[in-house]
Design a protein around this nucleic acid. Structure first.
Length: 1062
RNA sequence: GGGCGUUUAGCUCAGUUGGCUAGAGCAUCUCCCUUACAAGGAGAGGGUCGGGGGUUCGAGUCCCUCAACGCCCA
């Protein structure tokens, strides 16, 4: 792509021919590489939300990454030192699940494989998809700094994770204890609250009778509890009743004998209990019996009740969800024995059967309620008691800091108990776009609970803690002394030989007689830097020592979001940039990043954690100043495009059918600040390349998706598979069943636009002769109206684009571009200059400069077509235009954003042009109404004022209307002519047709008269209203008066014209 | 159950502090293969802005209410 090459461009833009060369040119340069710069150089940075390595990207990712690229390219052109940090996320549970499923299909089980081999296999999967994802980003044109590509589990990020864990551990912000977790019995892992999806379930409400230990005086011998989960009754430790319930007084304090188990349990009063009310509109009250069985080990609400009433916690299930006596249930009666070992589903049936058989099943009702399901295995989540690691995010240093970060004009009042904002770095600086998401973020933190960070997985950052259990008698005096006065589960940090070696040591009683010691190691790079008073033991020696002493590393890994939460820091070399010299200076220069662009579902999972971590570890500094939440892409049926649904569209399919620029333009154009954008998806027949609407089917979950197998619309005997079928694992493409690519007519607009630019450039290049360069800048003041107008419009356009970017108004950016390039440049300016440009070297320079600027302003959205055209246009530019700064550049990606002097915007010219444009519209309307062929020249008869206007705009009316001549309108009227009105005058157009149909002319004029009459009535009504005249803004009243006068003049002109027709 | 959003032309969507005759693209209709572009050009038709109520001189825009759909949280 030499700048001097002047080959003829093909007649249409073919993205597939252009894109690879452009990508190669970018790759061969270092335009996307950022380096730390001096303080006085403005910087702009974004860290990519790292896509999961579970699968290829879909259009939702394409949307988000296009928006980021627009911001990045724009700011790079504006002269900012611009960093876009790319990378991927290991996505612990999601990736492990995918790989496990794949292995199972091959007949291999993870547990048989062993941890090491499984992780290696997952690593292979990761490598494959990381490659796919990075390729996809490149194909979309993402201008990421690829030399800095990170992965959440690479060495740099792993160090950050371990260091962060170590620091939080030492600061008392990480603890371990028995807690109810959301347990997935299939994947056998704890899920965070965010990984639980609520689903409506059509189930039953069972009413079970629990006999009272002693009947009441009135003969009452039982209470009836209502439950959706009868099987958990084995672990009941109380029955609760609302204190306001009339029956409460007689029952509270008494006991019932738990059927099957024989356990005697108390009746307690708790106002959590919903009182029975069959008339209530609330389903809970309708179905309530007024008595609640309390199972603290198997229900989070019951757990809370248990805490309030100091109830026993009896866990009756194992990690597989089956009934078990191995996890805390030690009063198994003979009657209960047969239930041990049953799955929770079988146990439910068995319990119900038992109650029925013993006459204790009162009744059963159908009941629909929401139940938490694992977002991975989709089975109901079991609240389950187990040892987990938590981050104490409820601490003011984390939660408070996240809340204080919010800008005061979005969130004025912080919750009670949160320290006020100060002038600390980062306080009051975090802003959400659109505004409303500030509330979402706030409410999440207002109600935040401690964050369970351990996951029973193999794929992830293994928790850097070594644990051993010791009997209190063997624990040693120091530990016993440290724990003196502390309850079971109260953890205490102590000094020991391990802390002297640089580790941190946490102890707690797990029972009265057992102590758990947990030693947390920093990463080796941190350990090296700790002043350890002559302790020079290495990381590996320390590990060996610990294991010799009976410590075992916790097998669990960290929640994925723990590492993503550190992403804006870990990718920039934190905590030890010196260990990675290429990262030195990055943190200070590019963190806080400028903006985070992401989907709203991730505000809680990710945005929150990044804010807490970045602020905690970097002295209050925010990870980003702005958060932009973009819309969610839905399919044609209003369903969210997602991996799990399988309705995602691969951006490569769209790039294939429309080109990357078309995809990007359409995505940008649809990004308004609403929540969702709908994208009807079609398919391309691999046999004929024809686009068709697929056959749909409904999934068991009720979603409408493309049928896995589709028939060719032109030949039903030929079949193909849909992307949905492949994503859902239902079919595989074969030679006989090829994959049908997706496409969508949504992108036609973008494709057409790229082609329009291509052809406008083709036109210009033909007309820009090889004349010698101008030795002076073109003085706009000396140029015809068209030239002055187009430059003025260009300057206005640049301003509007700047505003759009500053406010994250992406659709405005696209619309302003489209309108300017298509309508102003192509439809008007290029048409106007056609007759003059060949002989006007200065006009050629104006055109070349306008086109040069157009390529620049379109580049952030359509980088490929603009970069392809760039050398041609720069090569054809033989001079400058005064007031327009367009410095040259080898690559467009590195070129400067256009800067126009305010003087180029001549309002008078813009005004005059607008009047002429109005006149043109009327004349063209007449031509259109009469179907006059474009070549046919016509004549206009107009009064002096209109002729002056036409003269004052240097021929544009003549050119755009095909006007051969303009005559004065006088007493001598042309015989065959059609009247129009303009600015209150009657004009005649002749030469349109050979004969005038008078009736048609009258009808046309009558329509104008009717319209004007109606309009005038409206204006008069408004102006006749004292309320309007007195209350409305004076300029609005003036404007209305002016409009009325104009309309009246037009009406008079139309009536006059009608009279002339006779 | 709580919160957020959406409902404007046949379709997909704009419409920033209330104020010109509510806009765009696609689709439809008419004419035109005019040497940049038929993925195009010049025109045209098409909307009582989801229903109801209110505030106001004036409401697509603000308030209340109902309905449908979607998402997030519990």
């Amino acid at each position: 792509m030499s700048t001097t090459e002047r080959t003829e461009l093909p007649p249409a833009y073919v993205p597939a021919d252009a894109e690879p060369g452009v990508r190669a040119a970018w790759a061969a340069s270092d335009v996307f590489h950022a380096e730390p710069v001096a303080d006085d150089v403005p910087t702009y940075s974004i860290v990519i939300p790292p896509p999961n390595v579970t699968a290829a990207l879909h259009l939702g990712h394409a949307l988000n990454n296009t928006l980021q690229d627009v911001l990045i390219r724009y700011h790079r052109m504006r002269g900012f030192e611009t960093l876009w940090m790319p990378g991927t996320d290991h996505a612990g549970i999601a990736t492990q699940t995918v790989v496990e499923k794949r292995l199972l299909a091959e007949g291999v089980k993870r547990l048989d494989m062993g941890r090491h081999a499984f992780v290696a296999r997952t690593q292979e999967w990761k490598d494959e998809y990381e490659r796919v994802i990075l390729d996809q980003l490149a194909e979309m044109g993402a201008s990421t700094d690829n030399a800095r590509t990170r992965f959440t589990m690479d060495e740099m990020c792993a160090t950050a994770v371990q260091h962060a864990f170590y620091e939080l551990f030492g600061d008392g912000l990480i603890y371990r204890g028995k807690r109810l977790v959301n347990w997935d019995p299939v994947t056998r892992t704890a899920l965070s609250d965010d990984e639980v999806e609520m689903e409506e379930v059509h189930g039953h409400m069972w009413y079970l009778r629990y006999p009272l230990a002693e009947p009441l005086a009135d003969g009452t011998d039982h209470v009836t509890v209502a439950t959706t989960r009868p099987e958990t009754m084995l672990g009941d430790t109380a029955v609760a009743v609302n204190p306001d319930d009339p029956r409460a007084a007689a029952l509270v304090g008494r006991t019932v004998v738990l059927p099957i188990v024989g356990r005697e349990i108390p009746i307690v009063a708790d106002d959590y209990v919903v009182m029975a009310d069959p008339e209530s509109s609330d389903a809970k009250a309708q179905f309530a019996s007024g008595f609640l069985k309390v199972t603290p080990a198997h229900d989070t609400n019951d757990w809370e009740i248990g805490l309030r009433h100091d109830l026993d916690v009896i866990n009756v299930m194992g990690p597989d969800g089956a009934i078990s006596d191995q996890y805390g249930w030690d009063d198994v009666s003979d009657e209960a024995r047969p239930f041990v070992g049953l799955s929770r589903e079988d146990a439910r049936r068995a319990v119900v059967t038992w109650f029925e058989a013993h006459g204790l099943l009162d009744h059963v009702r159908d009941y629909t309620h929401s139940v938490g399901h694992s977002y991975r295995s989709h089975v109901p989540v079991e609240p389950w008691l187990s040892d987990q690691w938590y981050v104490r995010v409820t601490d003011d240093r984390l939660r408070g800091s996240a809340l204080r970060a919010q800008v005061a004009d979005q969130i004025a009042e912080l919750p009670d108990g949160v320290a006020e904002r100060t002038d600390t770095t980062g306080d009051g600086e975090l802003r959400f776009y659109p505004d409303r998401y500030a509330r979402t973020y706030y409410q999440w933190h207002d109600n935040i609970r401690d964050w369970c960070i351990s996951r029973q997985l193999w794929w992830g950052h293994q928790i850097p803690v070594w644990i051993r259990l010791v009997h209190v008698d063997d624990a040693g005096d120091a530990i016993v002394a440290a724990l003196d006065g502390h309850d079971v589960d109260d953890a205490v940090l102590i000094e020991s030989r391990w802390t002297q070696a640089g580790a941190r040591h946490l102890v707690r009683r797990t029972t009265e007689t057992e102590i758990e010691e947990a030693v947390c190691l920093p990463p080796a790079s941190t350990l090296r830097r700790i002043d350890r008073e002559a302790h020079t033991i290495s990381y590996h020696e320390l590990v060996e020592d610990l294991e010799r002493e009976g410590y075992h590393r916790d097998p669990d890994v960290l929640d994925t979001w723990f590492s993503s939460g550190l992403w804006p820091m870990s990718t920039m070399g934190w905590p030890w940039p010196e260990d990675h010299p290429e990262t030195i200076g990055l943190l200070d220069c590019f963190n806080p990043t400028s903006v985070l662009s992401t989907a709203r579902e991730i505000i809680t999972l990710w945005v929150s954690r990044m804010v807490m971590f970045n602020r905690y570890f970097l002295d209050g500094r925010l990870p980003f100043d702005d958060v932009f939440i973009h819309a969610m892409v839905q399919d044609g049926h209003g369903q969210k495009m997602s991996k799990s649904l399988g309705n995602g569209v691969d951006p490569r399919d769209i790039i294939h059918s429309h080109g990357a620029d078309a995809m990007r333009f359409a995505l940008v154009q649809m990004t308004t600040d609403t929540q969702d954008v709908r994208m009807p998806v079609d398919m391309i027949d691999p046999y004929t390349s024809e686009t068709f609407e697929p056959e749909y089917v409904t999934t068991p979950a009720g979603h409408t998706v493309a049928a896995p197998i589709q028939s060719s619309p032109s030949d039903p005997s030929k079949q193909m598979v849909s992307a949905y079928g492949v994503a859902a694992g239902l079919v595989e493409p074969t030679d006989d069943l090829p994959l049908a690519r997706n496409t969508s007519s949504k992108f036609d607009l973008g494709r057409n636009f790229a082609n329009k630019l291509w052809n406008a450039t083709r036109f210009a290049l033909r007309r820009l002769g090889d004349t010698s360069p101008l030795d002076h800048p073109v003085e706009l003041a000396n140029r015809p109206v068209a030239d002055r107008w187009i430059v003025a419009r260009l300057a206005q356009t640049v301003d509007r684009l700047d505003e759009a970017i500053a406010g994250y108004q992406f659709n405005t950016y696209a619309d302003v571009l489209y309108d300017f390039v298509w309508h102003d440049v192509c439809d008007r300016y290029l048409e106007i200059v056609k007759p003059t440009i060949d002989d006007d070297p200065e006009q050629q320079v104006v055109l070349a400069n306008v086109l040069d600027a157009v390529l620049r302003v379109m580049h952030p959205v359509c980088p490929f077509v603009t970069e392809t055209l760039w050398p041609h246009v720069s090569g054809a530019r033989r001079g400058d235009v005064g007031g327009l700064a367009l410095p040259t550049s080898e690559l467009l990606a590195a070129a400067a954003w256009p800067v126009a002097d305010a003087s180029v915007v001549d309002e008078a010219i813009i005004d005059r042009f607008a009047r002429a444009d109005d006149l043109i519209g009327r004349i063209r309307g007449l031509r259109g109404a009469k179907n006059v062929p474009p070549k046919k020249q016509i004549e206009l008869h107009a009064p002096a004022a209109v002729r002056e206007l036409i003269d004052s705009v240097d021929g544009i009316v003549e050119v755009l209307c095909g006007l051969a001549e303009v005559h004065a309108i006088g007493a001598e009227r042309p015989k065959i002519a059609s009247p129009i009105t303009f600015e209150g005058s009657e004009l005649l157009v002749s030469g349109l047709v050979d004969d005038v149909d008078l009736d048609a002319e009258r009808a046309r004029l009558q329509k104008v008269i009717d319209g004007k009459t109606k309009q005038i009535a409206g204006f008069r009504g408004r102006l006749g209203n004292d309320g309007f005249v007195n209350n409305a803004a004076p300029e609005v009243v003036d404007q209305t008066r002016r409009l009325l006068a104009d309309a009246e003049a037009d009406l008079a002109a139309a009536e006059q014209a009608l009279a002339h027709l006779g």
